[in-house]
Nucleic acid binder design. Sequence first.
DNA 1: TTTTGCAAACCGACCGCCGGTCTTTAAATA
DNA 2: TATTTAAAGACCGGCGGTCGGTTTGCAAAA
Lengths: 236, 236
Amino acid sequence: MKPEERRNQLLDCAQMLFFSKGFEDTTMQDILASAGVSKGGFYHHFKSKDELLEGILNRFVEQTQTALRPVLEQEYPTWLDLYHAYFDVLRAQMSDGARARLPLFVMMFQDRNAALQQRMSDAIYIANLEIFAEVLQRGVRSGDLDLPDAEVAAGLALKIGTTHQDWMRKALRSTDLSELVTTGQKIDISLQLQGIAIDRMLGLPDGNTCIRADGFADDITAGIKDLLFDEDGQLK
Amino acid sequence: MKPEERRNQLLDCAQMLFFSKGFEDTTMQDILASAGVSKGGFYHHFKSKDELLEGILNRFVEQTQTALRPVLEQEYPTWLDLYHAYFDVLRAQMSDGARARLPLFVMMFQDRNAALQQRMSDAIYIANLEIFAEVLQRGVRSGDLDLPDAEVAAGLALKIGTTHQDWMRKALRSTDLSELVTTGQKIDISLQLQGIAIDRMLGLPDGNTCIRADGFADDITAGIKDLLFDEDGQLK
DNA sequence: TTTTGCAAACCGACCGCCGGTCTTTAAATA
DNA sequence: TATTTAAAGACCGGCGGTCGGTTTGCAAAA
């Protein structure tokens, strides 16, 4: 098997296991069995279990960056068009990623995956920060924005854009259907409020920043329902 | 030794070790040696290493809650006075906690403590959410606020109030003094911007929400400098 | 075309150490 | 003295990781 191929296979297997069982609870044996490779074979390609996680994280970071970088390289009539283009791509990324592998995506937010999810968020945060800071920097230069520090503002905006995850985690802790529905609505409200918060923080008129993709909250809620409840609406 | 006493001693020892070495890298042996107790002795008081961490977290949560709860129980001329009172206490808490044991506080933000720090943040977030949501709820009832959902808004505000931590982490990764100074300034700017962001998100006039305690950023920066650099300004 | 040389890929027994258990002992309390 | 509580420490299974040895693939030599 070619090195590249083997590496990717190991990353794929580990990713699935980490997301479903959690990083700590996935043993090397699990990964080796799943990939059909021996310990020696594995440690030929990766230095440690942690480096494996690092590799998984890097794939996501690269994916995010290759999606977002082109936004910076196009020409736009006004700075606001650049700004909107950035969020269009971001929204598409979020929506696609979630919809494509919903069960896996949902599982990632379980409590047992807290550490893993945190490292993932951090990685993606850093991947985004550079690019979004540049977007804001251009806004400052063009006079469309007035900020004490574009990088700090960018970091703040990105953090704001993650707050719906707290409600997703809460939704995953639901003990009955009505609680899930209530929390699901909060996911949606959170996404709306995030847009408003970023607008106001940057000093833009309400409605410029849109993070809320249509049906996103509903899809997530449905995914969580499938994970937690059976057909009768009983907790699994 | 009395049970309560022993428990607290174990919590104290473990807390110091977890913060300085990280949770994963602190072994039971370390804790037992530091507390001068045997395995059997320890496991008589705690069910597991994780329950020990839980205990440490709970102490912080209780500390936060006992500081903040009284704010809700007082009478105020206007809702805004309650709002200001809340942040006065929050600011005092943050400042005191940091100043009292600066080196330990700073260490907590090292990369190796990411998981620990995350659990701590989560615990304190949840402890605060309930109380701050009630503060906002009262604002909505009194007509001083107009929000789609007080709880979601409270969560968002609390998340905004943690964004300076990202810059603290970045500061801890400084490789030279000038980088540390630059990042230290970002901590301060971040604290200012946080206040503005929360104000605007809630629809209050700028300047109502103040998270930035005088000298906080400078203290932190000094603490990090002591941790990372020797007297000549060289990286340790 | 066949042989040879050799590095890359792979194997799996083995290691040290970790968190946690269990049986035993000592001290306190009644 | 009888009973409960606190503490001790040898011990355990299983974890992540190592290491010496084997196989494989392929280019160069014969």
